[in-house]
Every structure is written in structure tokens, then in C-alpha cells.
Design a protein around this nucleic acid. Structure first.
Lengths: 165, 165
DNA sequence: CACGGAGGTTCGGTCATTGAACTAGGATCG
DNA sequence: CGATCCTAGTTCAATGACCGAACCTCCGTG
């Protein structure tokens, strides 16, 4: 999203959120981190993002406390969990265009129950809203457009927040 | 969000969503439209957005089918309703910073039950997730930072998607 | 016609983004 | 030990989005 330097005059929680995650690429970086991508080179390979921009976004996410640097890798902190519903909602909104274009779509299953969560994040079996670590993501539908090794690895089912090899 | 022209290489519903609503100001425009702001001049007054940028964003939102032009006003189409949970999730994430800064916070009550919905959008009384038109928004907490007439009018309780006078 | 308001468009200047090239530090190989 | 490779950045010129202010156009009123 955005540019400039935030929305200082806005008296709104959404504006405050967008000052942290509203920049171009930031939400996609966070998405990949939730999916288990945690190395700089893997993020570059998956996102085709300029290295300087990725470096800036990682710094900002660390400064905001959403990512925690751990040597040469970045991990999602618990402070970022409240953003997971926003990512899931955006994905639900974007799925219409995605399926039209022949791309693949992701589903999120509750580990404890084995059932897919609904578009609003609830597990239909137990009725709860599982936190990100209790979800297993898998790709369904189209063949997927990206063939880089990281994207291929992400297509097989795996638990959120678990670092990929 | 973004800049450039989208995320064409991404095979992801979130990227598709961000190509529509990821630009700077776009989500804030949509937020105000959900709140009932529907005139160009009112959006300029509330957002302090450059008129050229607002014009561009409204055009894009109309092209995407999320807003419908109606003479000199813009109304939220039903196609935009799936974005409401994303806005609500972002607001929930941003509330921590907002309350620290002394700003006000918004609550969304289910009209049929009279109770506030939870952070994940559920009505605790009836258990459903009310669609946007069934919600009444009101400001609680701080005094609010903006004193322009539109922002003042928005602070009193009113139904979502209902055009302000 | 003069006037004012609403809804834009135009314009120069600034600043984020882009892509390519370069650097620094650590591990590995011979 | 030195050479090589990998990872994780940084630097830099060019592009293009954003900003603010001024201008333009249409419409309704007096």
C-alpha cells in the first residue's frame, strides 16, 4: 500500500495498521513468513522483490515486533498472529479472480480436527477459530504458476509458522 | 499498496486482492464508503488525500466493481462485502497502537440483537456473522482527533452502508 | 449573465520502487 | 593457508507514483 510516510492525520485503527503493513510487498512478505519461508534468499526467489525493498520491509517488520530475527532467518512473532485473519480475509476476497485465472487456491485445515476452516476462519467441527500454529495449509485446484523450488515446496501440506528446510 | 503495477508473477489470492485494494489510500477510501461517506468532497475532507489520487482510486474501485457511481455519489456494491472482514481484522490489529495514542476506537453492533460483535465479527448473542448492512458503528474511547464536519458526523452511531446526509 | 459549489484535471517537484551491479562475511573445498 | 561459493545485504541511476496547489468544467441558483 502505501507510500508517503503513513496516515498521521487519520484517527482510525485501520490507518494505524496500514502504517505498519500497508506498504507494497509487506503483506506478501508476512504471508510467506506465515507459510514457513524464513530466509532472505527464499523470499527473493518467491516474490521477485528487489533485494533493497525486501531488506527495508524486513527491517520495518522487525522494528514493529512482527518478525524476530534469528541469525540468518526471520520468524513470525506472536504479535503478528492478529494479522492472520486479515490475510485470510484478503485471500477469500481474491479467490474469485484467482480461480478465473486458473491459479491454485489454498485451504487451511485445523490440525486437531482434520477439517478445513471456513472463509471466516472457523473450524466447522469444533467451532473454534484455530490460531495460526494449529493450521495446515495445502494448495488445491490449478497446477500453480510458479516453479521455483520454494514455491513447489510450499504446495505440499505443511503446518503454518513451521520453517521450511 | 502498492506501486509498480500489481504482482503479476504471484500465484496467490492475497496478491490478487492487493492488486485491487493494495494501493495507498484505497482501503481507507473503502472504509469511509462502508461508513457511509459517499461524496468526493467528503472523502477529501476526511482523508486529506490529493484530489488526483482520490479520483484515480475511485475509478479503480468502480472498474473493479466494488463501488457503483450514482450521479455525484459512490455506493458500496455487494461485491465489496467480502472485504469487510479484512477491514475489521486490520482494525482489530491496529487498535493497540490506536488506544496507546489516545485516539478513539470503533465498535460494531448487530442491529437485530443490539450487542457488539467480537473481534472476529461474530455476534455473541445470535452466533452469526452479520453482513455489513446489519451493523451499527459507533466511536468509543478517546475524543477523536479530527474535527471536520464529516468526521464529527461519523462519530455518532449509524448503520453501515447508509449514506450520510 | 454572474456566482458558487461539486467534481474533477493538470502540473512541477519529491520520494519510493525497480533492476542491476557491487560488497561483506562466513562456510567449504583443495 | 588461499580460492571459491553462498547468503545477505548495500549502492546507484532511472522510472514512476505520490503530493500540493492551481486550474478547469459542469450544473444549479438568483
Amino acid at each position: 500500500m502505501p507510500l508517503g510516510q503513513g496516515y498521521p492525520a487519520q484517527d482510525c485503527a485501520i490507518a494505524r495498521a496500514l502504517e505498519v503493513v500497508g506498504d507494497r510487498w509487506t503483506l506478501l512478505v508476512l504471508r510467506d513468513c506465515f507459510f514457513g519461508v524464513h530466509r532472505f534468499a527464499d523470499l527473493v526467489a518467491r516474490l521477485d522483490v528487489p533485494r533493497a525493498v525486501l531488506s527495508d520491509r524486513l527491517d520495518r517488520l522487525v522494528a514493529a515486533g512482527l518478525l524476530v530475527p534469528d541469525g540468518r532467518s526471520y520468524r513470525v512473532s506472536e504479535a503478528a498472529w492478529p494479522l492472520w485473519p486479515a490475510l485470510r480475509s484478503l485471500a477469500a476476497f481474491g479467490e474469485a479472480a484467482q480461480t478465473e485465472a486458473g491459479g491454485s487456491v489454498r485451504r487451511f485445515a485445523h490440525v486437531a480436527c482434520g477439517t478445513d476452516t471456513t472463509a471466516d476462519g472457523h473450524c466447522p467441527t469444533c467451532g473454534t477459530v484455530p490460531p495460526p500454529p494449529d493450521l495446515v495449509v495445502r494448495a488445491v485446484g490449478g497446477p500453480g504458476r510458479r516453479e521455483d523450488p520454494v514455491s513447489v515446496a510450499l504446495r505440499s501440506p505443511h503446518r503454518l509458522l513451521t520453517p521450511l528446510p
